[in-house]
Design a binder for these strands. Sequence first.
DNA 1: GGAGGAACATACGCCACCGTATGGAGGTGC
DNA 2: GCACCTCCATACGGTGGCGTATGTTCCTCC
Lengths: 206, 206
Amino acid sequence: MDMVERRPRKQSATRLTAGDWTSAALDAMARGGLAAVAVEPLATHLGATKGSFYWHFANRDALIEAALQRWESDHTDAVITLVEAQPDPLARLRTLIAMVMESTAGPQADSIELAMLATASHPHVAPVLARVTERRVAYTAELFEALGLPAVEARHRALLAVSAYLGHAQLAHAAPQVVPGTAAERSAYVDRIIRLVTAPGDDRQE
Amino acid sequence: MDMVERRPRKQSATRLTAGDWTSAALDAMARGGLAAVAVEPLATHLGATKGSFYWHFANRDALIEAALQRWESDHTDAVITLVEAQPDPLARLRTLIAMVMESTAGPQADSIELAMLATASHPHVAPVLARVTERRVAYTAELFEALGLPAVEARHRALLAVSAYLGHAQLAHAAPQVVPGTAAERSAYVDRIIRLVTAPGDDRQE
DNA sequence: GGAGGAACATACGCCACCGTATGGAGGTGC
DNA sequence: GCACCTCCATACGGTGGCGTATGTTCCTCC
C-alpha cells in the first residue's frame, strides 16, 4: 500500500524509461492479472501521466508484448541454469521439483505465472505460454531420459510432473487450506511426489 | 456462431426467466471468462435489453452469484455420482481419473472450469472454488484410503492426483501440442498416471 | 545562452459497460 | 373492458479506460 515515491533522488529517476513501464506492468500483472495492466492506473501508480507512456509505447498492446517478452526471457533462464548446477540427473530432477513446488507456496507465490495461466487464451499470452510450457516439458523429459527411462515413458512422466506443478500452483491459489501448510509437511509431500514420479518402470501386467 | 433465435414459438419464450439469464451467463463464461458476463452483451445475445435483466436481478454481481451457485451444484453432483456407480475403489479411481482427464481434451473442454480457475481470486469465485476443490481432494483421498493406504499417504496421493488433473487442464489449454493428441495416446498416458499414483507404498530407504 | 529535440503534462473525444428512471405492452382477475 | 401487475424497452447519466493533439519543461550541444 506504500505509495511509490516520485522524484526520489535529485537528478535521475524523475524521468521514466520504457523498462520502468514494463516493470510496473509486470507488477500490476502479479497483483491483478492482465486486466490490471491499464495505462492510466499504471501512470498514476508511477506518479506520471499517459503522456509519458504514449511516448515510450505505441499503445497498451505494445506494453503487454514487451512485458511478456521480458517475463519469458527472465523466467526461462533462471530456473534451468540453477538446476543445471546439480551434479546428476536425479539431483537435478529433485531440485527442479522442489524449487517449483516451493515457489507456489507462501504469501508471495509466483503470481505472474498464475496470471499468465489465467489469461492463456489472450492472443499475446498464448504463444509465450506455449513456448515456456513446451520447453519445460522437454527439459523435464530429458531428465527422465537421463535416468534411463525410454522416450515415451520419460515424456509421460514429464507431462505428469509439469501437470503436478501447474496443478499445485492452482491448488495453492484456489484452495490454500488443502495443500500442506508447514515447511516440514511440504517437504514430505514433495518427497512423496518425487518417489512416485521416479518410481522404477513397473512390469506389472494389466 | 449461430444467433440465438428469439421469439421462436408463439406464446412462451418471448419472455425470459432468471434461469435463462444464468444459463446465458454460464455460456458467456465458458467463452470469454468472467469478464464476458456483462449485462449489455448478454442482453444483445438474448435478443433483449437491460430492462429485462434488471427486472430479474439487482445487478451484475447477483447474476454472477447465481451462475456460480448453479455451476457448483450442477457440477459437484455429476462426477461423483457417476464414479460411485463403479464396484470397487480401484475401478472408481480409474474411472475418476480417466473421466476428468478426458474432459480436458478435445475442442470442447470444460471451459467453465478453466474460467473459474482463471478468476480464482474473485471474491465470489474464491469460496465456490475452495469448496469444490476441497471436496475433490477429500473424495479422492477416501478412494486411496479404501485402497489400503494410510491417511497421510492417501492425502498426498490425492493432492497429486487432483493437481495432475488441474495441471493437465492447464496444459491442454495453454500448450495443446504437448499433450497426447490421439485417443490411444491419451489412454496410454492415463494408464501410466494411474499406475504411478496407485503404485504400492514403497519401502525404499532415502 | 539560445535552438532543438526528448520526455513529459494537459485536455479532449471516444467507446463499453453499469445502473436508474420511466413509460409501454401484454396477460389476468373480476 | 378496465384496473392491475408483470415483464420489458427506451432513454439517460455516470465511470473508467483508450488513444490523440498540443502545449510545456528540461536537457544537450555548440
